[in-house]
Nucleic acid binder design. Structure first.
Lengths: 225, 225
DNA sequence: TTGATTAAGTGGTCTGACCATTAGCGAAGC
DNA sequence: GCTTCGCTAATGGTCAGACCACTTAATCAA
């Protein structure tokens, strides 16, 4: 029945068995799985097979392997998948337009969700990053890391881990553009002010205004390409 | 501290090297990669390491291993990965909530971009899928594939390949949920009508109305969890 | 009590062997 | 000439055992 048609690797079978095990035991992130040795004995296969299955699951983020310690259940994460998506984006300048538009949607969505979730700590941190950004601008330096951190914190302010992962991936691609964007002190100062406007609007829980401010902030990026 | 060597195992390094190789050679789906033996000699590591790297990449769909034949570059489809990873998301309430909210943002953004891009062919195709959906509902069947296709076509209508990939990823996850959502004929019919309203609004280039209709369409999903 | 040492357990890597499957090719048959 | 069969070499699949590196915790010494 099951064993007749599908020609499957033992690794796949073992991988499925381990996944079933996680579900059956209702294990959560950080819970410890049986050791390699125990899995070998329990499943009756060679170490090779067990290891290949575990390595695969590790790449997918399903489990986390700690040398000399053991095997633990991983958290629910989009990261492994997203890494595969971006795997083919390498140095593809043509995709920039698409990425800019995608980022716009995500940033505007983040503003909306941030107001809904309203995490004061994150908002304070956004202010902090913006303060450091202004500081760096005053010293005539390009505030790349601070700008990145500001936006990442905004995504974190949504309280949505999945959204954070998704958006973070897109944002990272704009590192190169940022370098050129912050070439002049004026545009850098403008960015700082725009950030302030966005956070103010979020604090006021004014969705429409916050989105408008974010649109203004992102407008130069649209033209850039 | 950033560069403080992340202790990486050889499998990961080898995996990255192979990915680089694929990018450098600009290999496409179906192209043949060097055999295990060749990779072992070229990279100077043991067969164990190479195999673990390849097995992982196979699970991720990056490569396709054919016994007795060789190793081939895999396709860009993310579905196999999603199936591997998402098995635990369904029982993670928080993750579900995050996914639903993320999807809402993406669908609303898609509506906006679709109006901006305005691809008549795609709009016609959306109508076609909706027609088939209505047909299936009349026969008392759950129109899962048609619903999925409708939304995928909407994402395609944005003319944004990147957006299509990201959104499709999130959307696909709701397949199983759809099964339960279409349990009653009434809710299915309602979905068909809502689809129609969305496409009508897009055709009229009425962004506000189109978003409103999409909100209505997605509302039941929010409550579902 | 505290600190260093040690031992046991665990994952990381390597080696060599053998089995199973496949593609390619040449020989046999039509 | 063409097809078909069967062989062979190449390749991936699985196994066993060994040794190394790292972590943890028990042990011992100050």
């Amino acid at each position: 029945m099951l064993n007749s048609s599908e020609k499957v690797n033992l690794s796949h079978i073992v991988s499925d068995r381990i996944k079933e095990y996680i579900l059956e035991k209702d294990m959560r992130e950080g819970d410890k799985l049986p050791s390699e040795k125990q899995l070998i004995d329990a499943l009756g296969v060679s170490r090779t097979v067990v290891r290949e299955a575990l390595k695969s699951m590790e790449m997918l983020g399903i489990v986390k392997i700690k040398t000399g310690d053991g095997i633990y259940v991983g958290g629910p994460s989009l990261k492994p998948i997203l890494e595969q998506v971006s795997f083919r984006w390498q140095q593809d300048e043509r995709k920039m337009t698409e990425l800019v538009k995608t980022r716009r949607i995500l940033e505007l969505g983040a503003v909306e969700m941030a107001i809904e979730h309203y995490d004061v700590a994150c908002l304070d941190q956004m202010d902090e990053w913006n303060r450091r950004m202004a500081e760096k601008v005053d010293r005539g330096l390009p505030p790349i890391e601070e700008d990145l951190a500001f936006h990442e914190t905004l995504f974190r302010a949504t309280g949505n881990e999945t959204y954070l992962e998704l958006s973070g991936l897109i944002s990272d691609f704009f590192l190169k553009i940022r370098t050129q964007h912050f070439d002049s002190v004026e545009s850098s100062r403008k960015s700082v002010d725009e950030h302030q406007n966005v956070t103010d609007a979020i604090r006021a829980k004014d969705v429409a205004r916050a989105k408008r401010e974010m649109e203004i902030h992102l407008a130069p990026l649209q033209k850039f390409i």
